[in-house]
Amino acid sequence: MSHVVVIGAGQAGSSCVAKLRNGGFEGRVTLIGSEPALPYQRPPLSKAYLLGEMPLERMFLRPDSFYTDNKIDLRTGQTVTAIDTAAQTVTVGDEVLDYTDLVLTTGSAPRRLPASIGGDLEGVFTVRDLADVDTMAPWCKAGKTALIVGGGYIGLEAAAVCCKLGLNVVQVEMADRILQRVAAPQTSDYFRDLHKGHGVDLREGVGLTRLTGDGTVAGAELTDGTTLDVDVVIVGVGISPGTELAEAAGITIDNGIATDAQGRTSAPHVWAAGDCASFPYRGDRIRLESVPNAIDQAECVAENIMGAGKDYVARPWFWSDQYDVKLQIAGLNTGYDRVVTRDGGAAKSFWYYSGDRLLAVDAANDPRAYMIGKRLIEAGKSADPAVVADPDGDLKALLK
């Protein structure tokens, strides 16, 4: 009997096994996750869950009964230690499992501060899984001082939550501006003003030299020579794809586990999807770190295991929640040469162009701009910059 084994029980892994069963796959299905909990949503971890607004049960992607009813062998709290692509087996503890198809949805891991600069002190956290947030929560008490290292979306979301919890927040970003790697100066300006308006001591062009403390973090030395007294440190300096198992098995790695357009890796009968996978996109190779990509790519792989033979067509979109602002991003802004701002007061959007071609839209509390921009980008259409820039311009007319 055919047997699909999926390693990694996050959004991609859970989506893959669900698609297999919903698509009529009748063979064995095994989903293996290293965490003890049922597969759950990650985005609420550092926001609604940390704030106490969402209980764990509401974060589960599917109830336990789903896996039982659909004859999915869900193995939580177990770690795969080896893959043998020639024998088509995986090792889990003392057990060796055969597979006919293997799907790697091993996700990603946060980059941590080196121990040499205090990264191993108590009170220093990254945010990636339940254990991280459960351990961090008691440290995030009103009146304490939090240092946020990194000014990307992860760091900005952490700063917003700490402010909501009543902490004093200092945030440092080594680059010249926050969001420098992923957004235009206009978007950076918008979020700088937002965070400073909520009392964040935001310092750009300033990095961390080292953390200090006797076993527990107590202070920080910054690259501009200043020192801080701190009670908790949250590190948001990016993530690395989970490629260790694949690399050890001899599978090709290229900014993640390299796949073809249909999700196949360099090893026969081995597929990859989600944060860990890089794939062809418009003549290049990219890796998308987003929930929508994890779902869509994993479902495409499941269909291809069942013989669909279809290429994965990425439709990049992302979101970020900070205070009372929901940022929605459609498209990828790589290669933009100008930005057009649409200022609707409380609703603002930033439209990225390369020449006359619309590449992406950052929409802050502007779902209409986001939806129209997304539809235009997916259809390969552009948008008249004059209409975009006019807050009274009819965006919907751009779709005609």
Rank of each mutant, 00 (worst) to 15 (best):
T334L: 15
T341W: 07
F191I: 09
T100I: 12
V232T: 14
L167Y: 13
D129P: 03
S188W: 01
R338W: 03
S320R: 11
I234M: 12
L51F: 04
L51W: 12
G24Q: 15
G77R: 01
K196W: 03
R181C: 04
A258W: 06
Y67H: 09
G215M: 09
M371G: 11
G199I: 07
A87F: 07
D201Y: 13
V80Q: 00
K374L: 09
D132S: 13
G207C: 09
M371L: 15
E57A: 13
T227L: 00
T341E: 14
L38Q: 11
L31A: 04
L102W: 01
G123C: 02
E204R: 01
A363V: 11
G152K: 10
Q78V: 15
T212M: 12
S65R: 11
R210E: 15
T209N: 08
I7V: 13
K348L: 02
A82C: 14
E26N: 10
Y352C: 08
V339W: 13
V233T: 08
A183F: 07
R375M: 14
G344T: 06
L228Q: 06
T265M: 00
E378W: 10
V206P: 12
V237I: 15
R203T: 13
P391R: 05
T126D: 08
P114N: 02
P110S: 14
D284L: 01
C163E: 11
Q186G: 08
V5N: 07
L211K: 08
L358V: 12
L130Y: 02
